[in-house]
């Protein structure tokens, strides 16, 4: 059963977000927007959907309204993918993230049109956002095999021991993507999580979830193993408490959780889940994410430091 916000049902259906220009005499084929779980595109097990409107209030499409059970399935998929993804060489992860950039570049028009429709951006602004999103994937593709050298290294202990520290991914990260930055903001929070070998369960922007589903199609065709990124469209308020309390979620990125962040942080304390609180970008739209060099600050919260000792001797 579809859950619909008051007043929207049946009103001016409009054309889908990234639907190509109409061809005279031809009925366009619209896209069904679904979840992205374990590399597949299922509908919500709950059968629910919700209408997504443009910045002007026109109906764009129906998105799946993910349920608690979908969230649990997403955590299972992310955990299953973690071993393989974290064991890939950093070089291989970099290749795959770069491939994401390549595929996204090839779909610039689709994403720009989506940004114009969903967010009401100008063509120029939309193009700038898409360019920055592509470049962000390139940026983190390059980080995959640098971060261990930047953050780790030899420790000169006072004794005959080899001692070395290196960062390792923390595990499954539940990401609450920015509400008002559905493409560049989303990319900026997801790419660092997976670049470092974590796997992600992402709760997308509730009101502008379509770009995330489009991005899932890019991820699905970039050799990214299924389950590394799982996308849930729906409500942070409904899904969040379960993800925050889930014992198999190792970290929360609360960037897009808004007023719910404190409650989620309290819940996460029970399992000592790592927490990233909403930062200065929150509420600033896509423009808040334009800095081309965000550095390591979005990677370090999802990394553990492992230190290995071994005696030196003959």
């Amino acid at each position: 059963m579809a859950e619909r916000r008051k007043g929207n049902a049946g009103k001016n259906p409009g054309k889908g977000a990234a639907e190509p220009a109409p061809v005279p005499g031809r009925l366009a084929v619209r896209k069904t927007y679904k979840l992205y779980l374990g590399g597949a595109f299922p509908r919500s097990e709950s059968g629910r959907s919700y209408p997504v409107t443009s910045a002007k209030g026109d109906h764009l499409a129906n998105a799946s309204l993910a349920s608690r059970k979908d969230a649990r399935e997403a955590v299972v998929a992310a955990r299953k993918a973690f071993g393989g993804w974290s064991a890939r060489t950093a070089y291989n992860r970099g290749q795959i993230l770069y491939r994401v950039a390549e595929v996204l570049e090839g779909r610039r028009e689709q994403f720009a049109a989506q940004a114009v429709a969903a967010q009401g951006l100008s063509r120029e602004a939309a193009s700038r956002v898409v360019s920055a999103a592509v470049d962000r994937w390139v940026y983190y593709a390059g980080w995959t095999d640098k971060v261990a050298q930047v953050l780790g290294g030899a420790n000169p202990v006072s004794g005959p021991y080899y001692n070395h520290s290196a960062p390792e991914p923390t595990g499954v990260v539940a990401v609450f993507a920015p509400q008002d930055a559905p493409l560049l903001g989303l990319t900026s929070v997801v790419a660092p999580v997976i670049a470092t070998g974590n796997t992600a369960v992402v709760v997308t922007s509730e009101h502008a979830p379509l770009a995330a589903v489009d991005l899932a199609e890019v991820l699905a065709t970039s050799d990214l193993p299924g389950g590394v990124v799982n996308l849930l469209t729906g409500r942070a308020g409904e899904l969040g408490p379960h993800l925050a309390a889930h014992a198999d979620v190792n970290a929360l990125d609360l960037t897009g959780a808004g007023d719910l962040a404190t409650g989620f942080e309290e819940t996460a304390a029970t399992t000592l889940t790592r927490v990233v609180r909403p930062g200065p970008e929150s509420g600033g739209g896509e423009d808040a994410w334009l800095d081309p060099d965000p550095g390591t600050s979005r990677m370090t919260p999802f990394l553990e430091t492992k230190t290995v000792w071994h005696p030196i001797g003959v």
Binding site: V157, S158, G159, Y161, N163, T307, W309, H310, P311
Partner: peptide, 13 residues
């Protein structure tokens, strides 16, 4: 992880 040793500590580690 202590390999072939255990309970070693150091301020640099």
């Amino acid at each position: 992880i202590w390999s072939n040793t255990f309970n070693k500590f150091d301020p640099t580690s």
